[in-house]
Write a protein that binds this DNA or RNA. Sequence first.
DNA 1: AATGAATGAGTGTTCATTCAT
DNA 2: TATGAATGAACACTCATTCAT
Lengths: 181, 181, 181, 181
Amino acid sequence: MRNTEAVLEAAKKAFAELGVDAPMRDIAARAGVGVGTIYRNYPQRSDLIIAVFRRELDTTAEEAERLAAEYPPAEALRLWSESLARFVATKRGFASALHSGDPAYQPLPAQFLGILAPKVQSILDAGAADGTIRGGVSAEHLIHALSRLADDGPDDAAAAGPSMTDVLLDGLIVSPRSIEP
Amino acid sequence: MRNTEAVLEAAKKAFAELGVDAPMRDIAARAGVGVGTIYRNYPQRSDLIIAVFRRELDTTAEEAERLAAEYPPAEALRLWSESLARFVATKRGFASALHSGDPAYQPLPAQFLGILAPKVQSILDAGAADGTIRGGVSAEHLIHALSRLADDGPDDAAAAGPSMTDVLLDGLIVSPRSIEP
Amino acid sequence: MRNTEAVLEAAKKAFAELGVDAPMRDIAARAGVGVGTIYRNYPQRSDLIIAVFRRELDTTAEEAERLAAEYPPAEALRLWSESLARFVATKRGFASALHSGDPAYQPLPAQFLGILAPKVQSILDAGAADGTIRGGVSAEHLIHALSRLADDGPDDAAAAGPSMTDVLLDGLIVSPRSIEP
Amino acid sequence: MRNTEAVLEAAKKAFAELGVDAPMRDIAARAGVGVGTIYRNYPQRSDLIIAVFRRELDTTAEEAERLAAEYPPAEALRLWSESLARFVATKRGFASALHSGDPAYQPLPAQFLGILAPKVQSILDAGAADGTIRGGVSAEHLIHALSRLADDGPDDAAAAGPSMTDVLLDGLIVSPRSIEP
DNA sequence: AATGAATGAGTGTTCATTCAT
DNA sequence: TATGAATGAACACTCATTCAT
């Protein structure tokens, strides 16, 4: 495509302002392109969404790798969950789309998880091996849950207390404190 | 309204079959009522949704009270989370609507939490008091999170491992097992 | 509907100018009405088409009755075929739609034939009884064929010779001329 | 054109599967060719259609010649009408296109008749000469009519009775039976 | 000559919402 | 109060056709 970059840029902005269900027409107009052009290159809306977020998604995936190398598993997982939260929180409507059941978004979860799960699974496995992370939890489930919790809570959410994400991780990570009284 | 009951019953069925974003027309037709009638009594869609689920929501809230009376806080919380999951899982699209940002659903979270939070807060407070539940967590946050996790995970979700809801609660509840080796 | 008449009138004109596949928008605009109004009253396009032509269709059907009463079967059939031809020839695209297979028109043939066939069948039966019309031909088949032949032939069609409709009828009617040399 | 054969073959298949209004893209893709290439060689869709069916059309035309040589005119005409019916019935949407009025198909009838009419006219003339076929009927009219009747009738069409095509021919052919009581 | 990316008009269809009766 | 007819904005999606390469 001649204007790949323009389309992705336009879509990114549109997604940011209107959410991932922004009208195609809108995106096309921003990109100075006909709607057909977008449909040709991204037959499914989910194709466009993934393409738009692909770079950042890859970054998030690589982050998992990097953290796994630098930190012990439990710590890596905690840090990475922030990375994921940052990603999800930024994409308006992405989380909803991910879990919506709307046929337009149907391939989304698989693609999303396909990119992230393998890297995260490594961390989980390492943690299970050294006993710092509870075993038996699949990366897919965990990412799924983390992405759900990443969206804003009630308005006064920031107010106080630990984030639910942290609580979830606390339930997953075998803290030394709890086993060594 | 003359036909309050008919409308609520119709809406309940429509929500069950088509999700909470079922066409108003559809609901009105099932109730044998004009759409205008519904709009008069429930100006916002969220008003209707809450009205429809009010009874069950109250039941769920009372369940919290009952469990708090019968069980120690931690146990009560675990049991109640199942109650909530049952509620959320049954209402097609309710969870999505709850967090969607769609202006049509905007008042939904507040009303939803307004009914449930006080009762749950009691459990949390009791647990914090006797040291079995980590303090500093607001009921609103927790309910918010639990309702998000109640929706289906990836397709192979049922497969194995603990549910993310359980993991979250594990992070919240100070299990005797973990402190008494 | 408040504007039934306006819609039917508008549709009739639109059909005349653009054919029975005229854009709904177009029809609505001519009628000074929203598209939704048309969809509400005529969910299927074929419903609108039949409604528009209903009066003339009924007239054509009654014509069959009248002719059957006034003329011997063979003669009545010939005269009625002209009536049908007049009807079909006036409705741009009607004949095509009738046989198109397009799902939008799917119910059309049945409705069309449902109105006309019974009356014509009476003529055929009477003719078969008195030996002036070949038996074994169903009214539905015949109408189907006549409506197909009624559309314009090649441009120079009017030029000369008997119409194909007449030839078809000649094959159907046991003319006295042919048996009495 | 380099790939004339591939295009015609692809178009033929596309026409068979999707009808003569198959998307150009589709045809081009099947042929492994750019759409532009098709447009260059067949500026009008009707050009492509005729080109695709040309060979079979010629066969049908030659069939007329062959039958005229082997059989008496009336018999030849009957046999040929079957040949034509076979051709028309096989080409999805061809009959509709032939009579549709859609500008895209506008030149189609003339080209179609240009190929077939001369041969059929010979049969008609011969029949008129020896008194077995009613005179005054143009081949164009007749072919036009036959091609219209070749499409399926109502669903229960096959059920019973003579085909309308046969009836038409009965009206055209001066059967010995009818003149020799 | 061939390619195929790009264009964008065009259409069916759905529904929230209003308001005359 | 209740009704439900009417409105019309909104959107997805398809393709014929053009034209720069």
